[in-house]
Design a protein around this nucleic acid. Structure first.
Lengths: 125, 125
DNA sequence: ACCTTAGTTCGATAAAACTCGTACAACGGG
DNA sequence: CCCGTTGTACGAGTTTTATCGAACTAAGGT
């Protein structure tokens, strides 16, 4: 953990190809979020915001790796996540700045969705 | 225009089958909005909010009627619009109350999208 | 060099969605 | 009662999307 330092903004690996802020299209963004697995990915990235960048494997999904690659790529190409290559691992984070600029309120929707999904508080029906 | 009065809330025809507020699912809502035509439908309904209820034909889309039926049904079944039968016509409105309750901010996104789509102000590049 | 690890790419299959023509149903007017 | 209007239902063709196995690449350790 010395020559790849993931804390130093200067030595960050370049992001994988992604749409620029101006290229973000609402239809595509919504389409990407329309899938439950991808919605889960984004919301978990949002809620685990302390340790922002996570590998595909971190989520612990019980799916073949090629499926995960597919969904992460879909999210990246729609502009929802940014991915950087750290050695072997490809780490993802939500593009909050860009998304909040173009589509303010969108990410809050995703975060709220996660909380309504986990009815942690008892309060029966 | 007497026995169907579309101004009187008491004599409104019952809405066509639609999901209840609790049944609204974000994935489905986003999926419905991921289509450009449907996004246009909702945003135009939002922006023409004075004369709220419109028939399919009002939009002037150059598509076969069966295609329009398909998309309006998709919107209704996802919970985005409410449709009521007025004699021959089936009129649609956005379910703003329900959507604002469950997904606050979502409809603003759609409305904003419409304004970025129509660069009415000159201001070159 | 070899092996492990993280993830990609390709290809096939299968499921879903879009598009649209045709036929049909319902209301309202002459 | 027939006709025009508004929209549905069904079905087919086409395109997307999802899912996953299998082979591959690239980085890092020993």
């Amino acid at each position: 953990m010395r020559n790849v330092s993931m804390g130093n903004p200067d030595s960050l690996p370049a992001p994988l190809p992604e749409p620029s802020v101006e290229e973000l299209r609402l239809e595509s963004v919504l389409g990407a979020l329309a899938d439950p697995l991808r919605l889960t990915i984004v919301s978990r990235l949002l809620l685990e915001s302390e340790a922002y960048d996570h590998t595909c494997g971190w989520f612990g999904f019980d799916r073949p790796k090629s499926s995960l690659t597919h969904h992460f790529k879909a999210l990246r190409e729609a502009g929802l996540i940014r991915q950087r290559q750290y050695g072997l691992e490809r780490r993802s984070r939500v593009r909050d700045d860009d998304l909040n600029e173009r589509f303010p309120g969108l990410l809050e929707l995703v975060a709220d969705w996660a909380s309504t999904k986990l009815p942690r508080t008892s309060s029966a029906s």
